[in-house]
């Protein structure tokens, strides 16, 4: 049985909603996004994710006239039955206050119509900020967003402390976009818990440092299990980004099947796993037997196929 999730994508005009949607779900590369035109009213996209999960993306045009419409005449239609709202802020926006007020209105409308929806905010286009100031700017913007979220949530007496789940900084030019979307998607996939449980067992059997499960088309991280601490907490989205770039660059001629990268201190296997996933197994031993590991991956496949 397939389950549908309604995902609203909102934000000021030109903040990058369609760009990020195209990169994650439609295999665009960052450079191509400059060709995208503004979205008129609402663009609907159905994305099949992990086989039976269908994301119904509502990419809402951000021009003011559309926004007014959404908030007044189309209010019910837009904000009913929403599972997730993703609100995109342009970090360099000159009218951030105004953006925030629109955000507040949207959030109020959302909480009225679908009080259970989860809200994620992306502070986008972070690449335009100099690297030294990124964290600082993000913190400032995040505080603003949280303040307005609270304002919106107060009259509705929501049980949650804050209407917004999480703020992310993102940029289409680096891996932060994958981080944000992986976290969002993680909340949408059913039985992630069981999958992680199984992955942990599998990791223990293989004596692997780490196992990561990726969605096949988007290469977003669905689940992961680690048996040893790794110093780099951003590695998942980095790997997503690396492999996705590689997949895209060789897409016109070939399709990736599997990959084995090693040196003396590690050995990493990336392989097609179930019909909807790729798996990555990282072993500490650089001399790990290739055939044995690949066989193990193959044998684990049916167990995970049952889960989907």
């Amino acid at each position: 049985m397939s389950s549908r999730r309604k995902v609203l994508l909102m934000g000021k005009s030109g903040s990058g909603k369609t760009s990020m949607r195209s990169i994650i779900f439609a295999n665009y590369i960052a450079r191509d996004c400059s060709r995208l035109g503004p979205t008129i009213e609402v663009e609907h996209a159905h994305v099949r994710f992990l086989g039976n999960l269908v994301l119904h993306l509502w990419d809402c045009g951000g021009q003011e006239s559309f926004m007014e419409n959404f908030l007044v005449s189309q209010k019910d239609q837009i904000f009913k039955n929403v599972q997730v709202l993703i609100y995109v802020f342009d970090v360099e926006s000159r009218e951030f206050e105004k953006d925030l007020r629109y955000y507040q209105s949207c959030l109020e409308a959302l909480l009225q119509n679908s009080p259970k929806a989860q809200v994620f905010c992306l502070i986008h286009k972070m690449d335009l900020i100099e690297e030294d100031h990124r964290e600082e700017t993000f913190k400032k913007r995040e505080a603003d967003v949280l303040r307005y979220s609270e304002l919106a949530a107060r009259p509705h007496q929501v049980e949650r402390e804050n209407a917004v789940c999480q703020c992310f900084k993102s940029s289409i030019w680096d891996e932060t976009l994958y981080k944000a979307w992986s976290t969002i998607v993680y909340k949408l996939v059913p039985n992630v818990g069981i999958m992680e449980e199984k992955l942990k067992k599998f990791a223990a059997i293989l004596d692997a440092d780490e196992i990561i499960l990726f969605e096949r088309a988007t290469f977003l991280v669905i689940a992961h299990a680690e048996t040893r601490e790794h110093k780099d907490s951003h590695r998942f989205e980095k790997v997503s980004n690396i492999i996705k770039q590689f997949k895209l660059s060789c897409r016109c001629h070939f399709e990736l099947e599997s990959m084995h990268v090693k040196n003396s201190s590690f050995s990493a296997f990336i392989d097609t796993f179930t019909a909807n996933t790729f798996i990555m197994v990282v072993l500490r031993d650089g001399n790990a037997s290739v055939a044995a590991t690949q066989l193990n991956i193959k044998l684990a496949r049916p167990h995970f196929e049952k889960l989907e």
């Binding site: 060789c250 070939f254 399709e255 990736l256 099947e257 599997s258 990959m259 990268v261 090693k262 003396s264």
Partner: peptide, 12 residues
């Protein structure tokens, strides 16, 4: 390092 290697399989 001296043990670095990679095998990448692509299908058509």
């Amino acid at each position: 390092d001296e043990h670095s290697a990679a095998v990448i399989k692509l299908k058509k």
